[in-house]
């Protein structure tokens, strides 16, 4: 990561929310495109060493993005993001969810609301994402799920890697 690009990750346990702020060295239209076009999303959304594969994308209110994050040994984690409101190129609101390959959302799992905002920051673009769970109970379910779904062990290695790279120097 370029050291001069702002990155904040804030957890608010009382509000059951996570706020991620990140600057990008590109104009807003391009950063927006990268968030809303399937062929571009497939090139960055999954954390390393996973890759992204889009099965369905309809970026409009009421539409959804159905995608998998795939591990190097081929294990797929399916997710979908249902778009609730969109105002190009300022932001969108969506509902995330764990699902299967056919796109059916797991009803036992909590869905968090993503509020994503794009703003100009001089020659850069600031993206602010607020991930909001509806209760502490939902956060706990997400934690329990995260610990057993196998993504955790992949991420543990990732976390170690990031620590080595010094990219997690900022507070959690």
């Amino acid at each position: 990561m370029k050291a001069e690009l702002q990155f904040d990750f804030l957890v608010d346990k009382e509000k059951n929310s996570i706020t991620v702020k990140r600057e990008f060295a590109a104009e807003r239209q391009l950063v927006w495109d990268c968030h809303t076009k399937r062929e571009l999303l497939d090139r960055w959304f999954a954390p390393k060493p996973l890759t992204t594969k889009t099965k369905h994308m309809e970026f409009k209110e009421g539409g959804y993005w159905h995608y998998a994050m795939i591990t190097p040994d081929g294990q797929a984690f399916w997710n979908r993001l249902d778009y609730q409101s969109i105002s190009p190129i300022d932001g969108y609101v969506a509902l995330d969810g764990f699902c299967d390959e056919t796109g059916v959302v797991n009803p036992d799992m909590p869905r968090a609301r993503w509020d994503v905002a794009f703003t100009d920051a001089k020659a850069r673009t600031l993206v602010t994402t607020v991930v909001l769970y509806s209760s502490a109970d939902d956060v706990q379910k997400a934690i329990d799920m995260g610990l057993k779904d196998g993504l955790a062990s992949t991420l543990e290695r990732l976390d170690e890697l990031l620590h080595t790279m010094g990219a997690t120097a900022e507070q959690v």
Partner: peptide, 17 residues
Amino acid sequence: DQRAIWASRYQNLDSLL
């Protein structure tokens, strides 16, 4: 873990941009 996910995907986005 969540923080690591966002940090990593945004590094990918830097490269893509």
